[in-house]
């Protein structure tokens, strides 16, 4: 049982932190964080009507992603403004409609109750996510360095950004079981933020981000079992600890 949790957490965290390296480059930390909040009303509805919370989350996320994508290209409002307002509202809505006894789990996650079937689906989707990111990593990196340059060599930036947001949504849906809607953004961002402190090139950045994510996942589950704590918050605390160490190391590496 414990082994199954650890394996699932490793894959989900690896996918999320690999994605995170691009979220950091694109300075999309806030969007990612807010996006995870959108999942909450979806989870709530799933709990009320007894269907799989993962499906509820992914449905709400898909709508939100298309929303962001359209807003980015259609309106002149800053995306951060829209995201800030709309997504905080959906967190509030989610908090109200989620049944009380389920609220904590939806907010903070709980991987200890994960079924074998859920584990397998999570692992397969994580592998799919990693494969997609590795496949489009050069295009993504170029898009993030300069949209003009990427457009000038024929990359369709709009499509690329939609793909990016969709895989982001998938990562959020996957991670929610582990760390919950409230902390999901951190699952994506913190390992990459730590890696950025010491990495000098893209390859080491992506690898370190994944290593930190996986390390925090293993330690997170391990300590949560020993001290009988909720694994999500423990994971985030360990991640933050790694971040602090990386900040200190930055002085010596850079």
């Amino acid at each position: 049982m414990e082994f199954q949790q650890i394996i699932t957490a490793i894959f989900v965290s690896a996918a999320a932190s690999l994605l995170g390296s691009f979220a950091i480059l694109k300075r999309m930390a806030l969007v990612g964080d807010a996006l995870s909040h959108v999942a909450l009303p979806g989870i709530a509805l799933a709990l009320i009507f007894h269907f799989n919370p993962f499906l509820g989350a992914i449905a709400f996320l898909a709508v939100a992603v298309f929303g962001i994508w359209l807003v980015e290209y259609q309106s002149k409002l800053s995306i951060e403004t829209i995201v800030g307002v709309f997504f905080a509202a959906s967190l509030a809505l989610g908090a109200i409609i989620t049944p009380d006894h389920e609220l904590l789990e939806a907010m903070l996650g709980n991987i200890t109750t994960i079924s074998r079937q859920e584990s397998i689906v999570s692992i397969i989707l994580s592998i799919f996510l990693i494969a997609v990111i590795l496949k489009i990593r050069k295009k993504l990196a170029l898009n993030m360095v300069s949209q003009e340059l990427s457009q000038s060599i024929g990359i369709e930036n709009k499509q690329l950004e939609l793909v990016y947001l969709l895989i982001f949504a998938l990562a959020v849906a996957l991670g929610i079981r582990f760390v919950g809607a409230l902390l999901m953004g951190s699952l994506v961002i913190i390992p990459a933020a730590s890696a950025k402190n010491i990495a000098k090139n893209l390859n080491s950045f992506m690898s370190l981000s994944v290593i930190f994510g996986v390390l925090a996942a293993i330690l997170g589950i391990y300590f949560s079992q020993i001290y009988n704590l909720s694994p999500g918050p423990v994971f985030i605390l360990i991640s933050a600890g790694i971040f602090i160490v990386s900040m200190i190391m930055r002085k010596f590496v850079k």
Binding site: L25, K138, A141, L142, V145, S146, L149, A195, K196, A199, K200, N201, L202, N203, S204, F205, K254
Partner: peptide, 17 residues
């Protein structure tokens, strides 16, 4: 180009993008 000075991307990697 507005890029951060500590962007984790080497010149060689950039040329390979």
């Amino acid at each position: 180009m507005d890029i951060e000075t500590d962007i984790p991307l080497s010149v060689e990697e950039f040329l390979n993008l």
